[in-house]
Design a protein around this nucleic acid. Sequence first.
DNA 1: TTGAAAGCGCTAACAG
DNA 2: CTGTTAGCGCTTTCAA
Lengths: 359, 359
Amino acid sequence: MPKVTIQDVAREAGVALGTVSNALNHPDKVRPSTREAVERAMDKLGYTPNQSARLLAGGKNNVFGLVLPRLDHGFSLQIANGAHNEAQRNGFDIVIANAGNDDILESRYMRFFMGMQMAGVMAQPMAGPGWRPAGRRAAVPTVYLDIHSDAPGYFVAADNVAQGRLVAQHAIDSGAHRVAVVGRADFMQMSLRVEGVRDIAQHNPDVVFEFMDEGDWNLARDGYKIGHGLANRPRVERPDFVIALTDVLAIGVIAGLKSGRLSVPGDVRVAGCDGNPLAWTGSVPLTTVAPPGYEIGRKGVQNLIEQIELAKLAEFTHEPLAPLENHQVLVRPFLLARQSTGAEVRRAADPDLDLGSYL
Amino acid sequence: MPKVTIQDVAREAGVALGTVSNALNHPDKVRPSTREAVERAMDKLGYTPNQSARLLAGGKNNVFGLVLPRLDHGFSLQIANGAHNEAQRNGFDIVIANAGNDDILESRYMRFFMGMQMAGVMAQPMAGPGWRPAGRRAAVPTVYLDIHSDAPGYFVAADNVAQGRLVAQHAIDSGAHRVAVVGRADFMQMSLRVEGVRDIAQHNPDVVFEFMDEGDWNLARDGYKIGHGLANRPRVERPDFVIALTDVLAIGVIAGLKSGRLSVPGDVRVAGCDGNPLAWTGSVPLTTVAPPGYEIGRKGVQNLIEQIELAKLAEFTHEPLAPLENHQVLVRPFLLARQSTGAEVRRAADPDLDLGSYL
DNA sequence: TTGAAAGCGCTAACAG
DNA sequence: CTGTTAGCGCTTTCAA
């Protein structure tokens, strides 16, 4: 199939080249009858506009680029889905690049998207300690996801402190007297959650909070051990509420408690706090927070659109773009109360949050 | 930041425009010292090549486009990961579009990728009955994934018959005398698996095969009921091997058997046959086939590369491209023997197959 | 609406 | 290696 160009379409439709271009980009500037003729010609010839030429000539692009570190990590998939939905709502498309945990590839994809004149670029960077956004102000709107930073630029991240606070408050509200907080706080995210819990604890001196931040407790099996241990305590020393710093840990704790003949939520209530949808399929539906990734993806797209509007405005008023400032957005978590803390069984209100149902 | 062009870089580096282009595209044609100077200049100016211009000018693109129906379906993620790895191995990058189960969006993305002059495009279409590939021969190499078709074009799909055959043979090899095949064969894929099992059954008349194709058995809880039922049979009528048409079903069966005080694999061996990594985390590691999606993604990329080579050859010899024929590739499954059929516990050889470990 | 033409940034091909 | 040049296919502008 020799490639068909806009010229061929014009000839076929018996109109001028510019008219075809207009029919494509400014349909309102073309008489309906002409437009139809053009469309017929396009169909007949199987015309596909050359995006490269189009962008090069200064046409606008309604596609965002999203660079993710992996595609087999639930958090990143939440981001992708949240971004997808919000973009569609606003008339944008999204293409995704999988950096495969390789930071060389990550920056290659980012440059590719920028060079491709994408309307905007989002990335969830593999940010080691001391990470900084790429040097200069990018030519296209850019947002970094899952990142806390005080550098100039746009950053969206989950508010881990609020996550901890939310779950702790839920414990109080559900009438807990003795709360155990389990999980190793060796990552920033974990310690922030602990911080949130401590905050609530301070304001409720009548409730006993016990922080079990020891051992090597990241996996479900670690949770199991802890749960089993708790179950074997004398009743007065046994917590009636367990906050696990991750959902996976929470699942393990529930199994451990049950192995010790305790019931959840009857004897002990258990909550996670990082909204991992794949932990929702355990024997007892787990109370946790909404998957923050979804919201981060949404907010990221909103930030991109905001930057586009700002640039449009600056162009209109001929004012130079203000120097880039720091914009840090924290995603506010909300609670998903379920059976593990005594709530009624209920499905997530938004089916898009129900990632994992198809996996 | 005013956009910096290749001209700016040339001036900064004190070389000719063409030299910068060469340093970029044919590094071997440029003296190392010059190349370094150019690279320094690019860094200093923060130069990002304009991909649109580059492609328009006829430069080659090493990026494939992949259109998936959803991003929260394990099968599609397997495809994405398989494609990613194979592409990287061959020096190609991949960008992914999520069609969000919308066929309008699906074809928009495909056109976008083609218009973008991608090196190739792959799609896992939402193919209803009677699905056909898009009309004419595409301008860029195209492969359809998870599709059986006799139309002209490239198609890659899992060989479901072989999957059934493989698992059935495994049952025979492991010394089974009485095999139960459970699961509703109401989808094409299921019936093909059953067909494979029947094939093996016919060649082994000394082994009793019982096909339990009734009820509404798709979910783990259906498997549970079946397993429980089997456990309550008199010993002589009880199968010593269960083949479940899906892994999820298999997990349920195992739970059901255990609830009836039978051990797996001690009393009864159980195998799935669709390689769903998320079913691998049950109480007993499940024997199944390798996730076919991963292999489909790999094969798809290989097909793309094959088409590129063919086109290159045709261009070289000035022969016209042969008319497009039908190329249907069936992905040959291979067995992942694990504890549920008595195999030693072992991790997948290829960690990339271990999708789900991070979820 | 038309026709013509400029130019987006780059690649590849040319004679030096 | 340099310097120059012809497009790639399109959008936009301008005068008719």
